[in-house]
Simulated assay, not measured.
Amino acid sequence: MRDSLRRHAIAICTDKIAKKGDGVGLSFYAFFANKNDTPDALMEAARWWIETHKLDHFEKAVKIRAMIEAGE
């Protein structure tokens, strides 16, 4: 996953956790606006989430942030 997407995803996870607590879940769609203005980044996140890590549609934000921070 490109560095800019990693930083953005970590920021989104951190924000969600701060607002809703450690139990908050999210999908990779949370990293994007409601319009598809960056399809290449959306597909990159989808591949990382679905193909590479075989994650469920919704996962805990703390888990996703930890995975990204660890470079997975």
Rank of each mutant, 00 (worst) to 15 (best):
L26Q: 00
K16Q: 13
R6P: 00
E72P: 06
R47H: 15
F32L: 02
G21Q: 10
A18N: 11
N36A: 11
Y29K: 05
F32Y: 02
D3V: 03
K54N: 12
I10P: 02
K60D: 05
R47Q: 13
K54T: 05
Y29S: 04
F58H: 05
D22P: 14
C13H: 03
L5T: 09
A41S: 12
D56I: 01
A70C: 10
N34Q: 15
W49A: 05
A11Y: 03
E59C: 09
D3A: 11
A11W: 00
S27W: 05
F58W: 02
K16V: 11
K19V: 12
I17K: 09
L5A: 05
A18P: 00
I17F: 12
G21P: 13
I68W: 01
H57E: 09
K54V: 00
A66Y: 06
I50H: 13
I17D: 09
Y29I: 02
A11S: 13
L42I: 14
V24G: 04
F28M: 00
C13S: 02
A33E: 11
A18S: 12
A11F: 08
I64Q: 00
R65S: 05
R2H: 10
F28S: 04
K60G: 01
E69C: 07
L26N: 06
H53N: 15
K54H: 09
A9L: 06
P39R: 12
D22N: 15
F28D: 00
T38S: 11
F58N: 00
F31L: 04
G71H: 10
K16H: 12
W48N: 04
A45P: 02
A66M: 13
V24L: 06
E44D: 07
R2K: 15
F31K: 02
W49E: 00
K35S: 11
A61N: 02
E72Y: 11
W49N: 03
M1G: 10
I12L: 01
G25P: 04
R47F: 14
D37V: 12
D37T: 11
I68E: 04
I10M: 06
H53T: 02
F28W: 13
T52G: 03
M43I: 08
T38A: 08
L5Q: 06
C13N: 05
M67F: 08
K20N: 15
L42C: 07
K20R: 15
D15R: 15
R7V: 04
A41E: 15
I68M: 10
K35R: 14
L42D: 05
D15E: 14
D3G: 00
I64L: 07
H8P: 04
A11I: 03
D3N: 08
K16E: 14
S4Y: 09
K35A: 07
A11P: 03
A45D: 04
I50E: 12
F32W: 05
A66W: 10
G21E: 12
D3Y: 07
N36S: 13
M43W: 08
